[in-house]
């Protein structure tokens, strides 16, 4: 049981993170901590380094200098297989363009992430079905992604991201490809998830999304953190 007076433990820790592409520094000495249960929004103009930072936390790219620790794991010490296993067990990602497999049904897309960890097909489908039900698209389970609306696709992507119960959910412009109504639905979903304890890191251009979903906003410019503020979430 956590002591209510103690701050939650740190889940993500970045220390002096630097990433160079040739002569250009995409990240220039970024240090940041995210605690369990937080919902952090990262904002900034295009090319400010926010997506690069997301890649570092997800283990999709390696920093030129500095360290990233997620859930106690130093990502610099992991090889490619170790990073894949880290992604499988510790984090999940949702993207602007959903990235669902066109050849699989919604149910199989969601079950896929569980099956990759070795969960049997039946069990994985059962868990996927429960998630789809919770997200309100269980009736779409046998359809293929092409037959879904944008909002439904993103819900399916969220279901896939949650199927392995990740410690951290990374969202890269999750409402960027959605109309306002679908965007609202996804925002509500993210808020609900955070309220039941899911740690969120959202990269977005959308101040509305940041304001509604995040408890803290980190602002990026030229590869550096230039501002940070804590929010009182609007109910």
């Amino acid at each position: 049981m956590n002591d209510a007076t103690q701050p939650p433990p740190v889940l993500v820790s970045m220390d002096g993170l630097r990433k160079e592409y040739g002569d250009t520094a995409a990240l220039d000495g970024v240090s940041l901590q995210i605690r369990r249960g937080e919902a952090v929004a990262v904002m900034g103009p295009s090319g400010s380094g926010k997506s690069t930072m997301l890649n570092m936390i997800a283990g999709l790219d390696r920093p030129t200098a500095g360290a990233v620790t997620v859930d106690g794991k130093d990502l610099n010490g992991l090889n490619e297989t170790g990073r894949a296993l880290f992604r499988r067990r510790t984090i999940s990602m949702i993207f602007q363009f959903f990235n669902l497999l066109d050849d699989l049904t919604v149910l199989d897309n969601v079950a896929l992430a569980a099956q990759l960890t070795g969960v049997r097909a039946q069990q994985a489908r059962q868990r996927a079905l429960e998630l789809l039900d919770e997200l309100g698209i269980a009736d779409r389970r046998d359809l293929y992604p092409a037959a879904l609306s944008g909002g439904e696709r993103q819900r399916a992507a969220v279901a896939r991201a949650l199927v392995n119960r990740p410690a951290l959910l990374l969202a890269d412009e999750p409402t960027g490809a959605l109309d306002s109504h679908a965007g609202e639905q996804v925002m509500d979903l993210l808020i609900d998830l955070n309220q039941i304890g899911q740690t969120l890191l959202i990269v977005t251009h959308d101040p509305n999304l940041a304001q509604r979903c995040a408890s803290r906003i980190v602002e990026f410019a030229d590869g550096r953190i230039v501002g940070e503020r804590t929010l009182e979430r609007t109910p």
Partner: peptide, 11 residues
């Protein structure tokens, strides 16, 4: 996408 959800290089 598959790698992002944890597919290892061997897989």
């Amino acid at each position: 996408m598959l790698k992002s959800i944890g597919m290892t290089p061997r897989q």
